[in-house]
Design a protein around this nucleic acid. Structure first.
Length: 273
DNA sequence: CTCCTATCCTGCGAGC
DNA sequence: TGCTCGCAGGATAGGA
């Protein structure tokens, strides 16, 4: 489900919902076997901690607390919601009780998600965070030169390269396709054959498609919801994702669908070179 | 190294 | 209606 715009939307929703002086009363784990095991001491460690904010790095949510950072990845189907008493659902893996009586639930049917603990000050050394590439919306870090360096000498298709979290974070299967369409580059182009002009366009379009999607509250496909329960609406702006066989918005040629890098991929064989 | 494939798991929609 | 099959937004291990 969630790529950078969806995670950012959830982050903003959670931060607004939590306010500035939330305190964790207790954490209850329903089951700990997500993609990686939830550390069993996580509830103990964070009990009584002040929740000071929610940040995002790549597709991770970071709940800042006075006793460490609660790290959360939504995988494909993870959601956070306000769950009043009585609102228990299948696949609720973790309940976070606040001292004001409210309760947050982390639900993840497919269990590709993740909950972990980052010790205070240990962010730069955490194994899940330390090797991440630059944030795409950071103009300095995600530069044309950086992208070209990452592509140089590589024969791999460009699409899996821009989805590689070491190259740039937050770009998943949807926004990779949308950005490549906007930049008029085929997803199958060997990464090493990207020209500087194309890299310049691609960097710009990755930024703008992500920024537009954030402004639209993310994309709602099947069950993505913002923390407040509302859906985003960027899915109405998809130009290629899940549109194989439908006419290209630019030239009306039927869009082409194939598997690239192991993922379903759609592009216009006429517009994208 | 780089690149590709399979895999974790559940739910849902398409097709029969 | 009810069943089976294939596929799904991510990340990573392991093999070629």
């Amino acid at each position: 489900m969630p790529e950078l715009p969806e995670v950012e939307t959830v982050r903003a929703g959670l931060e607004r919902l939590l306010g500035r002086d939330a305190v964790i009363r207790a954490i209850a784990l329903q089951r700990g076997d997500l993609r990686a095991p939830i550390p069993p001491h996580l509830p103990r460690q964070l009990r009584g901690a002040a929740l000071t904010g929610v940040r995002r790095r790549a597709k991770y949510l970071l709940f800042d607390t006075s006793r460490g950072i609660l790290l959360s990845h939504l995988g494909m189907t993870g959601t956070w919601r306000l769950a009043p008493s009585g609102d228990e659902r299948p696949h609720d893996h973790c309940y976070l009780h606040l001292v004001d009586g409210r309760r947050l639930a982390f639900r993840d049917p497919r269990r590709f998600g993740l909950l972990d603990l980052v010790e205070l000050g240990g962010e730069a050394r955490h194994p899940r965070l330390k090797d991440l590439g630059p944030e795409p919306l950071d103009e300095l870090a995600f530069s044309v030169d950086h992208l070209l360096r990452c592509c140089r000498g590589r024969k791999q298709a460009l699409k899996p390269v821009i989805m590689d979290q070491h190259v740039v974070v937050g770009v998943g299967n949807i926004y990779a396709q949308e950005a490549l369409f906007r930049a008029q580059i085929r997803p199958t182009r060997p990464a090493g054959r990207l020209t500087r002009a194309e890299a310049t366009a691609l960097v710009a379009h990755i930024r703008t498609v992500l920024a537009e999607a954030i402004a639209a509250g993310g994309s709602t496909i099947s069950d993505f919801r913002q923390a407040g329960g509302d859906g985003g609406y960027f899915q109405h702006n998809f130009q290629v994702y899940d549109r194989a066989g439908l006419p290209c918005a630019v030239c009306s040629t039927p869009l082409h669908g194939a598997v690239v890098g192991g993922r379903g991929t759609t592009w216009c064989r006429r517009c994208q070179r």
